[in-house]
């Protein structure tokens, strides 16, 4: 295996682990409102999306959700089946928004779109499979507004970290597939 590819795989593994650590850390923070989550682990997802591409980002998300479920003992439980589709949909929509937005939309904007997508997907899944009544939509404004701001914060954090890695001349390895 070539060295740049090894570097890339190592970086991706570290990103998935960093996402996992952030996720577990976040679950320890007491939250005033249960449906508001900062989504710190998406910092790792976004970095993977911007440094490599949507496939790599998807891998980071799936690894994180899977490992988190194994560690918290909720594998294949309802939480898992909400987190996995939401994470996957968010990555796909963010990748689409990134290529559609081109240079005018920055990582912060893409991250806001991702956070909204993530929460809307979860709410829609709850609506479809758990609460089969329209009362669930009373939660929509409660997840929409926080997502806007957490998405913004997460996007800016990812941006600063990517800029920092470039200033430090961090070697991200290669992207031989030429994905994106």
């Amino acid at each position: 295996m070539s060295r740049p590819l090894t570097t890339k795989l190592t970086r991706l593994a570290l990103l998935a682990t960093a996402g996992l650590a952030l996720f577990l850390f976040e679950s320890l923070i007491p939250r005033p409102l249960p449906w508001i989550k900062p989504g710190l682990s998406q910092i790792a997802t976004l970095i993977a999306l911007y440094v490599y591409g949507w496939r790599e980002s998807l891998a980071v998300v799936v690894l994180r959700v899977g490992l988190a479920a194994l560690l918290t003992g909720s594998f294949a439980g309802p939480g898992f089946w909400l987190a996995l589709p939401a994470g996957v949909t968010a990555v796909l929509v963010m990748a689409a928004a990134r290529s559609a937005g081109g240079r005018s939309l920055s990582i912060a904007g893409v991250s806001m779109i991702g956070a909204l997508t993530h929460n809307l997907t979860q709410l829609a899944l709850v609506r479809l499979f758990y609460v089969r009544s329209s009362e669930i939509w009373t939660l929509l404004p409660l997840v929409w507004l926080p997502a806007l701001f957490t998405g913004l914060a997460v996007g800016l954090a990812a941006r600063l970290l990517i800029d920092f890695s470039r200033r430090m001349s961090l070697d991200w390895g290669t992207n031989p597939d030429g994905v994106e």
Partner: peptide, 16 residues
């Protein structure tokens, strides 16, 4: 070319 956005670009663009 695939890595980070250029350091000089503003944190929030007009579209953001």
């Amino acid at each position: 070319e695939r890595a980070a956005p250029a350091v000089r670009r503003p944190l929030l663009t007009q579209a953001d």
